[in-house]
Nucleic acid binder design. Structure first.
Lengths: 195, 195
DNA sequence: GTCTATATGACGATAGAC
DNA sequence: GTCTATCGTCATATAGAC
């Protein structure tokens, strides 16, 4: 309400999350530090400890947010689609889009080496994402062992694609997200059909 | 020759490389520190600077070693094979085997975020590896654009498989390297055939 | 809810003695 | 070729004042 510094009256938690997200996007989840997040939020290094028990707790919040964001993207993109092969293709394409367009969230969700067991909300959010592709795989392959294998293969493919598109200096799939997306979709269909 | 401490007479370079490799295997390439490598080699934190200009220089040496090791594995496994689809399948399987059996080297080669441009030997060693699968893709797809796309897809698949097998706590492909290897081989063939 | 102050401990890198 | 000593920087986390 008043015009004095905003962060000092209940908004710090959000300010820290924003700063942390920015940081993770710039330097990677591994090189994220709570101190620098505090610095960017304009508070002292000890202030965050009123809101987060430890460094990893803040990271876990961001990571869970990422999984929920991806899940929402998936729900939207898959609305009305019932063919499991198409679901798998679209899900993989959405994954790549998420990785590129929400790069900071993606870093937090897929590259922070934190002990997920300690943060149940993180595991739950993650599971809601994987359930979608696991279900599609189960419908494509009645045999449970085969379903798991196919789901793992599709998961590996999208994960590898995202890593290659984002981090490979050779840029083997070019600079265009649209092109890379098509390539991933094509590869996913090839994998599902030939498996 | 004499029985006094060994490292102090020309062996430090090797001792540091061994210690660094061990460290990278335990804590990941990102959390590697030159100081701790020195500690493990039994010397002071400043001693390494006589052999390596900076932290990343040691890391680059290990990473290049990893690429050369993988290249040697590929040469052996591919000896006498001429069918490009089989070359791609075998190369992917060998990549996974390398990632698991030489985990420390793999970490250094594929997870150290160093500026590769600054270490030419690293780029050369890496290129010798990718040439093998790039050539196979070129023989599978005469059209250059398609060859690049297929090579990128196969590269993504093997990279994602290795990451999933090594780091995914869900262990979707089980604990057995042999099983995972077969799954990757199968997926690679499916990808090549259906592309 | 945020502050200052502090304990504790890394790290990268350099200078100069031996 | 390795040492000691040191600088500067950064981090996580706690205690207690305001």
């Amino acid at each position: 309400m008043t015009t004095h510094d905003s962060y000092h009256h209940g908004d710090l938690r959000n300010a820290l999350e924003r700063a942390a997200l920015e940081l993770v996007g710039e330097k990677g989840a591994d090189n994220f530090s709570l101190s620098e997040a505090a610095r960017r939020a304009g508070v002292s290094p000890s202030a965050p400890y009123k809101h987060f028990a430890e460094r990893d707790a803040l990271l876990a919040v961001i990571a869970a947010k990422g999984h929920r964001f991806l899940h929402a993207m998936l729900r939207t993109a898959l609305a009305g689609e019932s063919d499991p092969a198409q679901i798998m293709r679209i899900a993989n394409e959405v994954f790549l889009t998420f990785a590129v367009e929400q790069h900071a969230l993606y870093e937090a969700s897929y590259y922070s080496r934190i002990d997920a067991e300690r943060y149940p909300e993180l595991m739950i959010a993650y599971k809601r994402v994987t359930d979608i592709t696991d279900d599609a795989a189960a419908r494509l392959r009645p045999d449970p062992a085969e379903a798991i294998g196919l789901a793992a293969a599709c998961g590996s493919l999208r994960y590898g694609f995202a890593a290659t598109f984002l981090f490979d200096r050779e840029k083997p799939m070019g600079e265009s997200l649209v092109t890379a997306r098509d390539q991933l979709g094509r590869a996913t269909i090839a994998l599902v059909n030939g498996y």
